[in-house]
Design a protein around this nucleic acid. Structure first.
Length: 869
DNA sequence: GTAGGGTTAG
């Protein structure tokens, strides 16, 4: 460095001395800068790593009048802005340029280029406009730069106008400009325009390998993987445009998306032949295709043969194992990465978090996130989405809320089209049963920005954790909204969950009709299985069977769904036949834990104690499936219902795991049926230890005491419930009715409900019916009236049960001969059961009554559940 | 020019 600027040899060791900024104090600039001095400055600026020194040179140039020389301006435009990308450097460069040499195309170009490089896209475009105002026309360097800027801004309008300039100024034959046009149209999502430019240059044979790579990449990005592969094949014919590393890296993901392993293998061979395999990018893409296509052995082979591996290679392997359902292997590879001291990046951490979320180990996912934070890796949008799904899977409301705060602070929630973080938040809040917050977030998203996933998570949230009616309402709203939103498999399944919870047969049929009408929507096995379940739960066994028969590729869920259908309708023998048929005809479909649960349930509700016990024994012995708590609860119920209370209790004592509430509730229920207050007290005690606010068990125990006439104990329980704030859920029943205009709706009746406009008619009919069936031999089951009152009052309390009110409404309003379907939120009592039998006979009606555990078909005085009630 | 993500059934 010459004396001209610094003088001091050991300048680097000095603190910035004010004299360099104030010429009055510092050495005066006496020499006019010579050419060699400027060259020195230029090479200094290119080499120095110190932003501080660049800043000093910049300031020095300002005060010394050097800024007016062309040489320094070009250096300012380029070298200074490279190192020192502060706003003032850009502003001064532009000012100096406009004042002293506005006709220097070179200076404009380097300044625009620096602006683009530093992401100052709007400024770059503005500069281009300024240069034109000064009469300097953009050339084949300028145009690709501003095309890149408009591409990065995704501004098709701007890109098109630059395309106009390209044509007007005759740059269509410049391959750089054309390649930039292709890349711009690609980024703006207009494959068609990109292809147009590409076809034009190839027809004039001015294309090169970059053009081909760009157009292949554009096809891949637009999801046109087959066309991408075809284009790639075409380029192979000409030796002038032999595929390079970038060609391979572009085309391999197309094979991956298509699952075209053989094509991938071909490209793998090609890479080895032409010596491109050593490139770590190519190697990574090859590992990725094998891993994603489930060929982990091949992926391992490639991974091991790579001379250079980076964190991406490892990530591809971790993701491969995780996506192929071998999460244990993924985690062990993750541990190996840590042992090998690979610098983990956000993708690595996120892949592991997502893996845990997928297998519902949300707490492990959250722990990994804590470690990630300790390693100072910044989470991004993808990390948050995975974490939210982890919280949703385990109902971690508090952690979910924390994440919501994080996301807000990091500005990761972008108000725009299909904001996946918001979708994740809505889903998380829904699955944590916080439908209020979920609804607030959902309503904050403008309708035009709601994607199908946004709608689906909200519909699914209401269907599974909230009000099923709201779910169906949202589904209709979505279809009638002006947006071009089309339900997908997920949406339909969620709507069906809502329909099945309400037993909304009409709704299920409408959804089915919609699915059939929209030919573009081909129901896959997943949706068909949902239909089987929904029809079963709406009481239409025939429809469920029909859907089952029409599935071409039934999976084990299809078979299990049909078994459930028979199970809940008390057709245990049929459920068992389905199971045996599946074993015989579809040996490749293996039953799992749920299949056995359904099987045990079916045996349970059809009184097939011995068969049930046999299946319970065989599941571990013959199928290697260890029974879960749910299986035990089912067998406790099975034994209990059969009166084998002692056996049930002993089974609980033998359980390899700690019995949960459902097990004790099953025992408690059995104690009710077989009037065993002693054991019931014990079971109720266990339930209250596990969940002191369980209203069901309190009510059950109080009923048991009431049956035994132990009114003091009843009062004690009542007091306990009152003191501890446990509220008995009110029993209610609902039935489909018609609103004005024939739109179907649900009418809900509570015990003793008098809110319906037709109340007087309903009660009159009920009164009449009770008298008529009394004449036929019906006697009220006083046990079911749990109030310490006289018999006459008990009778009237019984006759006001919600299901009886719903039945009277049905008899009043349904056309004769139609089936009356009623759903109840709590278990149907014996008195209503008996009354329904009689009423079905005298009114000559088929009645289907559903409660949380089963269906009762009443016909001609008989019920499908027979003796096993 | 490479890697990671959200919604569904028994």
């Amino acid at each position: 460095m010459t004396d001209f600027f610094f003088g001091d040899k050991d300048f680097e060791n000095l603190a910035p001395p004010p004299r360099f900024f104030l010429p009055a104090i510092g050495r005066p600039v006496s020499t006019t800068p010579s050419h060699s001095v400027l060259e020195d400055i230029s090479s200094f600026l290119k080499e120095t790593k110190s932003v501080r020194l660049v800043r000093i040179v910049h300031q020095r140039a300002l005060v010394s009048g050097l800024l007016t020389t062309y040489s320094f301006i070009s250096s300012l435009c380029n070298d200074i802005t490279v190192r020192y990308a502060a706003l003032d450097a850009f502003v001064e460069a532009q000012n100096a340029l406009e004042i002293h040499c506005p006709s220097s195309l070179f200076c404009w170009n380097v300044l625009i280029s620096q602006n683009v490089r530093h992401g100052r896209l709007d400024d770059a475009l503005l500069l281009c406009r300024r240069m034109r105002r000064f009469g300097t026309r953009p050339d084949h360097f300028t145009l690709p730069l501003v095309l890149k800027a408009s591409g990065q801004l995704s501004s098709l309008r701007l890109g098109r106008s630059i395309h106009g300039v390209v044509c007007r100024d005759g740059f269509q034959s410049n391959v750089f400009v054309c390649n930039a046009l292709i890349a711009m149209y690609d980024r703006c999502g207009s494959l068609q325009a990109a292809v147009y430019v590409f076809d034009e240059i190839t027809s004039r044979e001015i294309d090169d390998v970059v053009s081909w790579n760009s157009i292949v990449a554009a096809h891949v990005k637009a999801g046109q993987n087959n066309l991408a592969l075809e284009t790639f094949r075409e380029m192979g014919h000409d030796m002038n445009r032999r595929p390079d590393v970038i060609s391979l890296v572009n085309v391999l993901p197309a094979c991956t998306s298509l699952g075209a392993v053989s094509k991938g293998k071909e490209i793998h061979g090609c890479a080895l032949r032409i010596g491109l395999f050593s490139d770590v990018f190519v190697g990574n893409a090859i590992v990725d295709i094998y891993a994603k296509c489930g060929m982990m052995t091949d992926a391992v082979g490639v991974f091991n043969s790579m001379a250079v591996r980076d964190v991406v290679s490892w990530n591809a392997m971790v993701a491969g194992y995780s996506q192929n359902g071998n999460f244990a292997q993924a985690v062990s590879l993750f541990d190996e990465m840590r042992k090998e001291k690979i610098v983990l990046n956000v993708v690595t951490w996120t892949a592991v978090i997502a893996g845990y979320a997928q297998i519902d180990l949300g707490h492990d996912a959250i722990n990994v996130f804590r470690q990630m934070q300790q390693s100072k890796t910044e989470p991004n949008v993808v990390t948050f989405i995975s974490l939210l799904s982890a919280c949703a899977s385990v109902g971690a409301h508090r952690q979910g809320m924390e994440l919501h705060g994080h996301a807000l602070r990091r500005h990761l929630i972008i108000a725009g089209d299909d904001d996946m973080v918001t979708n994740g938040l809505i889903d998380m809040y829904s699955k944590c049963s916080d439908l209020i917050t979920a609804g607030v977030l959902f309503n904050l998203v403008p309708v035009c920005n709601r994607s199908i996933v946004t709608w689906t998570v909200m519909i699914g949230g209401h269907a599974q954790h909230g009000d099923a009616n709201s779910a169906l309402e949202l589904f209709s709203q979505m279809l009638s909204a002006d947006s071009n939103i089309c339900p997908n498999d997920f949406t339909v399944s969620c709507a069906l969950i809502a329909a099945s919870r309400l037993s909304a047969l009409h709704f299920a049929r409408q959804i089915h009709a919609y699915v059939i009408r929209h030919r573009s929507f081909t129901p896959m096995v997943f949706v068909s299985n949902s239909f089987i379940d929904t029809y079963a739960k709406c009481g239409d066994i025939g429809a469920a069977e029909k859907v089952f028969d029409l599935i071409t590729r039934k999976n084990s869920v299809s078979w299990t769904s049909l078994m459930t259908c028979y199970g809940i309708h008390g057709r245990g023998e049929d459920a068992l036949l389905v199971f045996e048929k599946m074993r015989k005809e579809k040996a490749d479909l293996s039953p799992d834990g749920v299949t056995f649960l359904v099987l045990l349930y079916a045996c349970n509700h059809s009184g097939m104690v011995n068969q049930g016990l046999e299946y319970f024994e065989s599941m571990e012995r013959d199928f290697g499936i260890s029974p879960s708590v749910e299986h035990y609860a089912c067998v406790v119920d099975l034994l209990g219902r059969a009166g084998r209370l002692q056996d049930a209790h002993e089974l609980i004592n033998r359980m390899p795991m700690k019995p949960t509430m459902i097990v004790w509730v099953a025992l408690l229920g059995a104690c009710k049926i077989h009037s065993n207050p002693g054991l019931a007290e014990f079971a109720a005690q266990r339930v209250s230890e596990l969940d002191s606010e369980n209203d069901g068990s309190c009510t059950l125990l109080s009923n048991i005491y009431a049956n035994a006439g132990r009114w003091q104990d009843v009062a004690r329980i009542r007091r306990h419930m009152k003191n501890s704030g446990v509220k008995k859920r009110p029993g209610c029943s609902w039935i489909e009715g018609k609103k004005k205009g024939g739109v179907s709706t649900f009418i809900t009746f509570y015990v003793g409900d008098k809110s319906h406009p037709q109340t007087s008619q309903i009660y009159a009919l009920l009164h009449d019916l009770m008298q008529r069936i009394g004449a036929l031999g019906y006697t009220p089951e006083m046990n079911c009236a749990l109030h310490d009152v006289d018999d006459e009052e008990k009778c009237s309390l019984l006759s006001e049960h919600s299901e009886k009110l719903a039945l009277a409404f049905g008899l009043l309003t349904y056309p004769s001969g139609s089936i009356i379907r009623i759903t109840k939120n709590l278990r149907v009592c014996e008195d209503c059961h008996s009354a329904f039998c009689f009423i079905s006979k005298i009114a000559d009606r088929e009645i289907i009554l559903r409660d949380p555990s089963r269906f009762h078909h009443f016909k001609q005085g008989l019920c499908s559940c027979g003796d096993y009630w």
